[in-house]
Write a protein that binds this DNA or RNA. Structure first.
Lengths: 201, 201
DNA sequence: CAAAAGTAAGTGAATGGTTACTTACTTTAT
DNA sequence: ATAAAGTAAGTAACCATTCACTTACTTTTG
């Protein structure tokens, strides 16, 4: 019928909830996104959220699952059918940056979750996402070395850290400037320096 | 008489408060450090804090001021009497990393403040700290170019971003590992890659 | 020089606002 | 008609801030 906005199916509602949280995280401190704010943005009452999620942590977990799936499938897609490891790293970098530009709330939520002392479910999910992400970079760096594209004396772990950090640096700068558009402009220039640091001769 | 712990002078109390907050920020999400937690760690009642600070924001502002002074003076000291711009960059990098290793709560608080939507006093202080920090790197990169130590085609802004990001990456990894000691080990290896990315020939 | 007055620092118990979550009841869709 | 989805009005916990009062030390004054 599509006319009624109320009484959506649970699956749809859960999906909308996740997108709403990510939207809100782009605008405010993820740590103080309230269930009231989420419900309000969705045009629902606060209590309605708890028909779909048992508690707030479950909402955040759903967000983390969404982020994990989308980010990893995005970078995986960007990388497939690219033969050269360094080209793959570049494609991965750009895919990640454009994902962040589309969803600025994502890195903020990730970092926000990692800050927690106790290991909550969403925190663990953030940790595994990042570890999966790092694994992918690791593979490309090893392959790049094997093919002679990368400096043979390169420290693999450090190279992975710097890859992740270079994106962090861009995110932080866009956080400071409050401007997401600059991300796309600066990204290739930062990657060029990184590439220069890891490639052979 | 030095025996009494109670009734310290206001200045001392304020200094202890700042250190306590940074200590707490190393252990838990800076966003939910409560005035009760601060007071409790100091062996004071909650109300006593407000004899020294008008409100919680003033406490956070004091923390940011502490961080700004200490971090900038630390890197400035590390750099003085170093002629070569690249050597200065390295010294600055290492000084920053060792500062963070000593005070793991600091980067967490900084990032936490930057996350806020409204611009509170402590947020503005975090912003100016970072902008001062970036200026210093900028100068060395320009000097490095002038002296031919750095790649002439280098994008200055990108190089600054990557410098900051490389530290961010290290911090994030130590956040994941929950291990601050690895910072000092990994730092030189990450900097080597960075240096390779910006230096000439 | 000591008692009185003053002051900064401390306590502990309100206070009011906010938040996650619950409950009792109503609406909608199949 | 019944189960899922929604509402509105709770509740208990928590948090920053305030307040009335006490304690430790300093300054003033008879």
């Amino acid at each position: 019928m599509a006319l009624h906005v109320k009484h959506l199916s649970g699956d749809k509602r859960r999906a909308i909830t996740v997108e709403t949280v990510i939207e809100l995280a782009a605008e405010q401190n993820p740590n103080d996104i309230t269930t009231a704010a989420i419900a309000n943005r969705m045009g629902l009452s606060q209590g309605a959220l708890f028909k779909h999620f048992p508690n707030k942590d479950a909402i955040l977990s759903a967000v983390m699952e969404w982020v994990s799936k989308r980010l990893l499938s995005r970078v995986d897609k960007a990388v497939q059918s690219i033969a050269s490891p360094t080209a793959a790293l570049e494609a991965m970098f750009m895919a990640h940056v454009s994902f962040v530009a589309e969803h600025p709330g994502v890195p903020r939520m990730l970092f926000g979750e990692l800050q927690h002392a106790s290991d909550t479910a969403p925190k663990r999910m953030a940790q595994t996402l990042i570890s999966h992400y790092r694994e992918r970079i690791h593979k490309f760096i090893e392959a790049g070395k094997a093919e002679g594209e990368l400096y043979s004396g390169l420290d693999n772990d450090a190279a992975v850290s710097l890859f992740v950090g270079s994106i962090q640096g861009l995110v932080m700068q866009s956080l400071l400037a409050g401007d997401v558009k600059k991300l796309a402009q600066e990204a290739p220039r930062v990657f060029n320096i990184y590439l220069r640091g890891i490639r052979s001769a």
